[in-house]
Amino acid sequence: MQLTGSYKFNHEQQAVWDVLMNPDAIAKALPGVDELIPVEGEPDTWRADAKLGIATVRGKYSGIVKLSEQNPPNQYRLTVSGSGQNSIIDGTTLISLSYDADNQQTILNWEADVQISGKLASIGQRLIGAAANMMSKQFFQGLEKQLPKS
């Protein structure tokens, strides 16, 4: 499933980039995640356990978060793969930043390819797109909270 979206930060591009690359900040921003544990021998790769979901549909997932294709401070790829609730979620998102000097905003565009298998695929059909949008918004909001007030 292809999904796209954007988010605007009222911050400088470098500051946004830095927070996007900071595992502690990512852990805090990812809904339901307490900690990212580095995977040995794999750069920019972490293991995480998460309590994920929306409202009543919520469960424990465990998976891998990986940053790659970094082109600071403009673009990188965020790959997440996790499983839980008899479902497997694999997503890869290309995240691009650009700065809108007029409005003093950093614009983040994301293009994701999400593959959902198992229970959620067969039963969550009507809501997966909206849920992904909502959770990505929560993630970027979570990151923004960790940026110094501008």
């Binding site: 009543t56 919520r58 469960g59 609730q85 959620l120 039963i123």
Partner: peptide, 21 residues
């Protein structure tokens, strides 16, 4: 914990084990 009223949203999700309060 979850509140259970009529259960007609919650129980179907629990039956599928999508919800495990």
């Amino acid at each position: 914990a979850k509140a259970l009223a009529g259960g007609h949203s919650l129980i179907p999700a629990m039956n599928q084990r999508l919800s495990t309060p």
